[in-house]
Design a protein around this nucleic acid. Structure first.
Lengths: 233, 233
DNA sequence: CAGTATCCGATGCGATACTG
DNA sequence: CAGTATCGCATCGGATACTG
């Protein structure tokens, strides 16, 4: 049996929405993902088969529109107005998750490339000098089963950011040395930036201005500042 | 594989939430459902097995608390604070659904007992006389495969409402004769009450006061008044 | 009534291989 | 690169039967 057999709008919405991966695909689209493999970077564990299938379903439901790229192979996927309005739902869902669903941090689940992929989208360029800035992240103390990934470069230029897993060759402006878990905790809002520095989980090396401004231009997760529930028994 | 392998709060929330039936179970709990079979009335198509399993999952996730009834067999299920805060998500989801996911009304999916079960919860008692009011609904023109269900009684008394599928024997104060689909359309906000009356899809018989006040004390679906998107091409 | 245990069929989904 | 077709297994979930 398919569907819930109800005319309630919540039920109708759930028929397309409460499917595995679908809310996260929408999250990626609303965060600016447009290409198939771009979406996959934000969803490392989804299979290509399933992503393709879900995109087709979303397009049939009028939530996604796709068209072939002007040049090259492949398509561009765009959120429609209906998808845009879904942001409201995802924001409430994320706030709820931040308050009630953040389980004890399991370092084995820590996916550093995914973390950096998200970091990339949360830069306040207005707080940065107009020239190109290259930040190298040196990670340590991540679990053995993590992909071989110790260093990456964040390139901030012209209002856009890129993450490189290989040395792009540019001169480095700032080096962030971080315990992987500490970086993740700061990102999620579990501990403050200052606390992580004081604990030694995070260290910055570079020009004074850039270092001092770091917490202002590296925005954290969208939900980092959501107030957790007071501990009630 | 279980889970999304992400620390994003949306992903965490989805692990418990984006499962079949779960949002609707939450909807029922937040609408006041407390007993197993009470929940089932709002979810006619769920199996007992699955409802039981989901309630256990929700309890493990801290979203539901249950305890044996003081008297009698069975348990009482209660939404926790976490569930209460989930209302925000469901409201946004319902608004989205009302705007974007209400497909062409399929009369074959029209479940009148379910409709009445929902109607029962949307009464503004402040608009009613303090005494007991009994409303009889006579339905017509519903699909053949619908359960044999033509008439039901809505009993409004002491701030609580009950739906009976068999004559409770009380004197009837008001009779609503309705084309089943018209009633559903009014309920969902697709057409106005006045329009349905003018079209002949709905008729009221009873004392003038009660008839005139009807649209004020029979509240519609929670989402009936959500503005639909302007028709853009 | 208020559920739970068991069984088994449907489908969801990942792996692999393939295509323009 | 940017996907799609096929296959096979794992799990999801409904039906049935059972229990206090």
């Amino acid at each position: 049996m398919k569907g819930y057999g109800q005319f309630c709008p919540i039920a109708m919405a759930c028929e397309t929405f409460a499917e595995r991966w679908t809310p996260l695909i929408l999250r990626e689209l609303l965060a600016g993902g447009r290409r198939f493999n771009e979406l996959r970077q934000g969803l490392p564990l989804i299979s290509r088969t399933l992503l393709g299938q879900r995109l087709r379903e979303l397009e049939a439901a009028g939530i996604v529109q796709s068209r072939p790229l002007a040049r090259g192979r492949g398509r561009e996927y765009r959120p429609t107005q209906a998808a845009e309005e879904f942001r409201e739902v995802l924001d409430r869902l994320g706030e709820w998750g931040q308050r009630w669903a953040t389980t004890q941090f399991d370092p084995d689940n820590l996916d550093l490339p995914l973390l950096m992929w998200n970091v990339r989208r949360r830069i306040d360029f207005a707080r940065l000098p107009a020239r190109r800035i290259v930040v190298r992240f040196d990670f340590r103390a991540f679990p053995a089963r993590c992909r071989p990934f110790r260093t990456c470069w964040l390139i901030l230029e012209g209002g856009g950011s890129d993450v490189c897993l290989k040395d792009p060759g540019h001169e480095v402006d700032l080096v962030v040395s971080a315990d992987a878990e500490a970086m993740a905790r700061v990102w999620t809002g579990a501990i403050s930036f200052g606390q992580a520095v004081r604990d030694g989980g995070l260290r910055l090396d570079g020009p004074r201005d850039l270092v001092r401004a770091f917490p202002s231009w590296l925005l954290l997760s969208h939900f980092a500042h959501v107030q957790r529930p007071a501990r009630v028994v």
